[in-house]
Write a protein that binds this DNA or RNA. Structure first.
Lengths: 322, 322
DNA sequence: ACCAAGACCGAAAGAAACTTTCCTCCATGG
DNA sequence: CCATGGAGGAAAGTTTCTTTCGGTCTTGGT
């Protein structure tokens, strides 16, 4: 009989449509098998996943034959034994499953009132992840670099945002603070304006607005600009009112109808915040590292060491937040 | 302690890019493992495919431990034994391989001080997106459903979180409020406790902590439970101190060393918040719709209509936030 | 400091799964 | 009618997996 290569031998590593080579091989050898072995083969072809989950004893019984025959069968199709066959089957079953689900192209993203909860979770995770990914891909690194440089040397940094963007602003402020940059986050129209009025050429003001049209934020940023501060906008719509800023960092989130409640948008904004934060921390590495470690040390005592019956070792000491 | 689901139970089976849920589970339980078991876990995380191909004897030897420990490890992560774990790993390895051929090569996640800014942005977007995606894939929908039902009929909902998790809590509170659910978010230890003391059987308390060990949050949630309220935890480490909660929703974020500043973790938490929010909005469709529209209407006036020369019409009116 | 409780872990016995060996059965062709 | 050889199963042999048990090390409480 001509040599039929085993799955792991010289095989093309990446034909796009992955195929269950082992099952195919078995099928092609089917006619040349003895009756008892053929029963085994047939059963595996019928349901490889199930076969992978059975012990050799079980499989032999299912095929009304002996374990020895199964072993012989494994040898016939060029495996060293049952273990190896089983591993190959399990792997291929996984591939098949992966392909199956990957094939189902993602939903329109929009959520219907009668979607099942499983679908809802899938769609949310999908659109949220996409918002993050696309924001990263679309982010203008040159602008980012400029903003980072400007911030690194700023005397003071003001952050404006209302509604959901206020939380993003607060998050940014907290992070800046942790690496030793003086910054403030405001979400009250009056306070924003009064704070902006105190800025000058040495300062930076950052306005966060998904729509780019939030009056309070735009006004505060405008005021900051009038006072001479460098202005930065984080928005999904660079051509909106807030686009006048010196530097515009664009997010790429598409909110769907039902979820008009600022879901993907704030994740996209936070991604930008992460880029700012890490970029800054990196550009001021020595300072940041020290500051991060100091702050980490400070909150360490706020962790529970072992207050309940639980396996030893408290969760990673490294995480210093929340 | 709340039930921690096995890979095959009520869980979302398919974020687009297939996700290795077993490995994710192991990762989330890593900190709660004993030293010897942790070595085993680490080795599996490092190279699942190789682990799947090893016998228990081999694996034990590689980890410089006994086979008994490996078995114990399998039990800790809710497998019936080594065989089952091996099968799951083999299947996932297959999935990964199938996905790899189509997908892009993955960066190694960790950020070095001398990475270029472009690389930094790529890595951030990648890990952030992965955190969102994997959280969605690993989320236990049954638990989510229970939590949603409980919340929908609650008299009042308290949300606890400090540090970065405080912003997530505030975000959740804001969203709940928008669909007409009475809720409060606290981040001050004293206020948390006093608020928790006022809860009873009709109420729900939600504690948010990445590590699961933040003293303030855990104490407040404990107090709430003692008063009879239903308790919910959102954490990356279900076996941590906060795991006592009636219902545990697990996130799947891996913070990298440099970014120990709560980046991916809060995105993962927000993804869970989104699922809660949309799930609730959906289950109370009529009420939510009305409430959403009313609130949207209320903030509409806070948008700029056309205050400068700008191309298209103003961005989506539907987005009602920030 | 000392003891008790309990977590942790490996050695070894026991069970199950896998592999090899060997023997029987049976069809075939001289 | 008998040698021959392949198919297939029983059982012995080997490896892998699981359970049990006891020892060591912490930890928390006198």
């Amino acid at each position: 009989m001509a040599h039929i290569p085993k799955p792991t031998e010289g095989r093309v590593e990446s034909g796009i449509p992955q195929v269950p080579t082992t099952v195919l091989r078995i099928r092609s050898l089917l006619p040349s098998l003895a009756p008892a072995e053929r029963r085994v083969a047939q059963r595996i072809i019928d349901d490889p996943e199930r076969a992978a989950a059975s012990s050799i004893t079980q499989l032999a019984k299912d095929c009304a034959t002996s374990e020895a025959t199964v072993i012989r069968f494994c040898r016939t199709i060029d495996f060293s034994g049952y273990r190896e066959l089983r591993l190959a089957l399990a792997t291929e079953a996984g591939q098949a499953r992966g392909a199956r689900t990957t094939g189902a192209p993602e939903p329109d993203g929009d959520i219907n009132p009668d979607d099942t909860l499983v679908t809802v979770v899938q769609k949310i995770a999908y659109t949220d992840a996409r918002a993050v990914e696309e924001t990263g891909a679309a982010l203008d690194v040159e602008v980012l670099r400029t903003v980072i440089d400007t911030m690194a040397s700023a005397r003071r940094i003001d952050v404006y945002g209302v509604g959901a963007s206020a939380f993003v602003g607060a998050d940014l402020q907290q992070k800046l603070h942790r690496i030793g940059l003086a910054s403030f986050a405001w979400s009250d129209a009056h306070v924003m304006l009064t704070s902006a009025a105190l800025l000058d050429e040495r300062d930076v003001a950052i306005g966060i607005s998904h729509s780019g049209s939030t009056i309070d934020t735009v006004q505060a940023l405008t005021e900051a600009g009038r006072r001479g501060a460098r202005t930065v906008a984080i928005t999904n719509f660079p051509r909106s009112a807030i686009g006048f800023a010196d530097h515009v960092l664009t997010t790429a989130a598409r909110e769907t109808t039902f979820r008009s409640g600022a879901t993907a948008s704030r994740l996209a904004q936070l991604t930008v915040v992460d880029c700012l934060f890490v970029g800054l921390a990196q550009s001021r590495y020595a300072d940041s590292r020290a500051a991060l470690e100091t702050t980490a040390e400070a909150v360490r005592g706020l962790r529970i060491n072992d207050d309940r019956k639980r396996r030893r070792g408290r969760p990673d000491d490294r995480t210093t937040d929340e």
